[in-house]
């Protein structure tokens, strides 16, 4: 692996570093609060993994541009709303056209991977290509010539990042918050019952009891 390749995968190195750090803290720390902090770092690393996966350098937020809206859509499109129910995920791209776009994108992304990877040859797309992942998330909004609505909307500034990983991670963050809150609540109770939050001291007391 050349240095360039190595650096090209920088997002993964960060993720791995964070993950291992978090994991180490969970295992090595006796203090329950610190364990939970470690757990959080661990979870954050996964969130980073997802988000960096969906990010295209130079890509914008996936808001349906006005040029597409003017194509006979009365509805004002809403974008990337985020909530803690996973159901809403695919609905982000609201109009039928966008649904089709996504569809075509998925069907054709194999063939078009190369051209787009060349075009966006930085960041994750490239990384995936160079590691052995063929179907890396290449996020291009519109690509196929046969799409009626897409023709007019096809320009560079429409390059946007895949919103899905972000939305998924929103859910994961909610889960993370819930977990942390619950964990801290438990720690509060443990502290009230035992008078300490050092795990070995607690175990010592249990053994004595």
């Amino acid at each position: 692996m050349s240095t360039e390749q190595f650096l090209g995968l920088y997002n993964y190195w960060i993720v791995i570093f964070l993950m291992m750090t978090g994991f180490y803290i969970v295992i090595a720390r006796n203090n329950l609060v610190k364990t939970i902090i470690g757990l959080n770092i661990f979870q954050i690393s996964v969130i980073l993994l997802y988000v960096s996966m969906g990010k295209i350098s130079g890509g914008t937020a996936p808001i349906v541009p006005p040029s597409m809206v003017s194509h006979g859509h009365a509805d004002v499109p809403h974008v990337a709303h985020a909530d803690n129910h996973a159901d809403a995920r695919p609905h982000d791209l609201h109009s039928d056209e966008t649904k089709d776009l996504a569809h075509d994108h998925q069907d054709d992304h194999d063939n078009e991977h190369d051209s787009h990877a060349a075009q966006e040859s930085r960041g994750t797309a490239e990384d995936h290509k160079e590691t052995d992942s063929p179907d890396a998330l290449v996020n291009h909004p519109v690509s196929d010539s046969d799409h009626h609505a897409a023709d007019s909307a096809h320009d560079e500034q429409l390059t946007y990042s895949n919103p899905l990983p972000s939305v998924l991670m929103l859910t994961a963050i909610v889960v993370g918050i819930a977990t942390t809150a619950l964990a801290l609540a438990l720690i509060v109770r443990i502290r009230e019952d035992y008078g300490t939050i050092e795990e070995d001291e607690i175990l010592e007391m249990d053994r004595a009891a």
Partner: peptide, 11 residues
């Protein structure tokens, strides 16, 4: 405004 731009109930 979450319906129109970035935002939503969660934030």
């Amino acid at each position: 405004h979450g319906d129109f731009g970035p935002g939503g109930g969660f934030q």
